[in-house]
Design a protein around this nucleic acid. Structure first.
Lengths: 206, 206
DNA sequence: GTCTATAACTGGATAGAC
DNA sequence: GTCTATCCAGTTATAGAC
């Protein structure tokens, strides 16, 4: 090993730890509910390091967190959807997994950006656009995924939007009730929606 | 006119103004993002009146706001659903109205409790339960409404949950993008879901 | 019951030592 | 680059005059 960024301990660098801590805290406590001092403590980093790595302060840290966590979440969900061959079973399995994961984390780890998205929608234009960009990427990725089984692009897009929306809404209800049932019901509805769309595509001459 | 609560001006009493202001501000800026001083200013009430009428402070004010606004929103949506005879058209019309209302308010006035619900789900047990109670009442009311057209109670309940979830998720995406399209897509999906359920109920012997 | 002043604390942001 | 001390505006909450 040379010198420089060798840490002896096997942990990420300060900048990464700050961003990871911010991701966790924003997801659980929201934007206004999370303090920079709290982030520094959770990251085990000195307070000043936040402004060293993120000169734009809380807004810059939050924007990078939204975009990074949003992209990571998209990859995670797509990998989950690709782990099952049949599309309807795949959607059902994805919602069931989300329900179990949510319960396993004490109903804390749902969507990484939804709380912040609602908080900033009317209060911070820069962050609002960041959340909008993330959702737009999710819809585009979902549209590509559904296009494998539903030829009409408009239908595929509508299915992708619906999956994201019903998942987001289910997260709200499941977290509030501390109950997996809403997420499971969401999975059943999304499966039904996809099944109908595939059937519809099977008989185009109507 | 006698004496006592005659105000000369025709405006609600102080307590009501405080609660109304809190409803508006929580909906737009969230729980942590709204200060009591801001609420007092918006209500045109002295700061001390908040603690006079709500001795439990911010938490008590928020809890009463969640429950009151939640019940009012439920009545509003049900009245909207009852304004059209055909159930599928009714659902479509309700989502279209929500989309237009959201756009008309600068994408600010969506669900009155969703932002707060996500913020408090992991941080304040009293408020988390208040939001859960409101959502449970919404599901129960929706179940009764769908039961008029779908005999199976489980299906009616699932439809009610799905409507609320897809509406909540659509609010998140529409507010983030400042675009009515997600809410419109949500309306189409919910209409499709209901149509399938009604058809299913029409041929019970399968 | 109305309203003001202030206490006690936490927020984001900055300056500057090392 | 790391870390501490501090500033000032903001928060919730309370005390007490009127």
């Amino acid at each position: 090993m040379g010198h420089g960024q060798g840490q002896g301990q096997d942990r990420p660098d300060t900048r990464t730890r700050i961003q990871d801590a911010a991701t966790v805290l924003f997801r659980r406590n929201g934007y206004a509910g999370t303090g920079l001092k709290q982030i520094a403590a959770e990251a085990d980093a000195p307070f000043g390091s936040i402004y060293h790595f993120f000169p734009g302060g809380k807004q810059q840290l939050t924007e990078e967190t939204i975009r990074t966590a949003g992209a990571a979440y998209s990859r995670m969900v797509l990998a989950l959807l690709d782990s099952v061959a049949d599309p309807v079973e795949s959607v059902t399995h994805a919602f069931a997994t989300a329900a179990d994961d949510l319960e396993a984390t004490g109903y804390a780890d749902a969507c990484p950006i939804a709380t912040v998205a609602l908080e900033v929608a009317s209060t911070n234009e820069t962050l609002r656009i960041a959340t909008a960009d993330v959702f737009a990427e999710w819809v585009a990725a979902g549209e590509q995924w559904f296009a494998r089984w539903v030829p009409d692009p408009g239908t595929a897009r509508s299915l992708a939007q619906s999956l994201i929306m019903i998942l987001e809404g289910a997260f709200v209800l499941s977290r509030a009730a501390r109950d997996r049932e809403p997420l499971r019901a969401a999975g059943r509805s999304m499966a039904a929606l996809l099944r109908s769309a595939i059937e519809e595509a099977g008989r185009p001459s109507e």
